[in-house]
Design a protein around this nucleic acid. Structure first.
Lengths: 155, 155
DNA sequence: GATGAAAGCTTGTCCTA
DNA sequence: TAGGACAAGCTTTCATC
């Protein structure tokens, strides 16, 4: 199933990372193929899981979601059951758009999106720190964006 | 320019966050409009900047980019010029897919994507810590994904 | 990988509520 | 002010080379 990805596939992926809605005809021109083989390659990339999904990226501030907070979480214990319970709870919070278990200093990291600091604070006080497995949290609040890209650094 | 977003717009946004490549006909069915007014709304959402862009999300591990690292950065000084220089350098590194200036404990946070720990280490030793403004860094390495969503929590 | 043809989609115009 | 119908021109997609 993992057929090799060649130079043309990489051009397809680069183009679709920048504009996931470009037409197949436009894409074919850009990568130097005719539409049929281009579409065949795109479908293969989708079916083999190289392309995970296509998404519209929304402008948070324009829809009243102006704040992103990175949260580091420490658990009471690293116990598998506790961790499982944490995972299940966190998946249900729409504000938590990403969450990972980590090894090292803290036990989990997450990205939380809310309207503003006040809304974040309510989320933290009312939901996050009430999860029984959570011992403590620390937050880092982005004040200015230097870079935000949805393109993976293809070789 | 900020015309109000109504319930139908929110349905459109929800659908396009999940599948940014769905056809307008399919979208129109899903939100309960005929294709013309649906397309008109989508174009307005694009032009007004509510929809920022459409992207294909790739599966990192499937293309040899298996590691994401969250990096906290401390500067030597918070001087505007130093910060500017840091921003310009960081924007040029394709491994750095996100970077924000923060207030609080550290000075910047970034997300770095590489093939593996070894490649990350090379990036840190050869590039990141050689930026003159960087005093020190700390990393958090996700070991397991609990949640990763590209959907903002629309009300 | 290219061609060509059928089916379906996008998108503009005009009409209606 | 906003949705719907319709038609022209493109795109997608598949069989065939």
């Amino acid at each position: 199933m993992p057929e090799a990805i060649d130079a043309i596939d990489r051009r397809i992926l680069r183009a679709l990372q920048r504009n996931g809605r470009m037409s197949n005809v436009e894409l074919a021109n850009e990568v130097g193929l005719s539409p049929s083989p281009c579409l065949r390659r795109v479908r293969l990339l989708e079916e083999s899981g190289v392309i995970d999904q296509y998404v519209a990226v929304l402008n948070g501030p324009r829809i009243g979601l102006g704040l992103t907070v990175f949260v580091r979480v420490w658990f009471k214990t690293q116990d598998a059951e506790i961790t499982q319970q944490f995972a299940e709870t966190v998946r249900k919070f729409p504000e938590v758009v990403e969450c990972y278990l980590t090894t090292g200093e803290c036990d989990a990291i997450m990205r939380v999106v809310t309207a503003d600091l006040h809304a974040y604070w309510r989320f933290q006080a009312d939901h996050l720190t009430r999860i029984p497995s959570v011992q403590s949290v620390k937050t880092d609040v982005p004040m200015e964006t230097i870079k935000r890209s949805y393109e993976l650094p293809l070789l």
